[in-house]
């Protein structure tokens, strides 16, 4: 399963719920305001770190750039993808779940 999270973890519990319910072997792509969750200095970094062994984490580059975060340190292991990379992930995983 490819999960997308589009909310800042400081505003909503979306990322927290996704991390609770994403099964081992799935991927989480942070998009839109969800990219704030990718910041190494952010509060969500610890929770992401706890699941790094069994989930893959990605953040959408154009959304990071739009928010002035291109140069900001991200949580270790988060890979940056563009929209084509998003498409590749959606094709690679058998289903998509949007956490809204």
């Amino acid at each position: 399963m490819l999960h997308t999270v589009n909310k800042s973890p400081l505003e909503r519990n979306t990322l927290e719920s996704c991390l609770r319910l994403a099964a081992k072997g799935s991927a989480i792509l942070l998009i839109e305001d969800g990219v704030y969750g990718a910041l190494a200095a952010g509060q969500a970094a610890k929770e992401i770190g706890k699941r790094k062994a069994d989930l893959k984490f990605y953040a959408l580059g154009p959304d990071l750039a739009a928010r002035g975060l291109s140069e900001s340190p991200l949580v270790d292991g988060i890979e940056i993808v563009d929209y084509e990379g998003f498409v590749d992930l959606a094709a690679e995983y058998e289903a998509h779940q949007a956490w809204l």
């Binding site: 589009n6 998009i31 839109e32 305001d33 154009p62 563009d82 929209y83 084509e84 998003f86 498409v87 590749d88 959606a90 094709a91 809204l100």
Partner: peptide, 26 residues
């Protein structure tokens, strides 16, 4: 697409995704 074109980014993201999917031959 669950949101309109102005208040939320959802429709923009969906459009960019659709364009990229087509560009990749899907």
């Amino acid at each position: 697409v669950n949101e309109g074109p102005f208040t939320h980014q959802a429709s923009d993201s969906a459009y960019q995704f659709a364009k990229a999917a087509i560009a990749k031959g899907h």
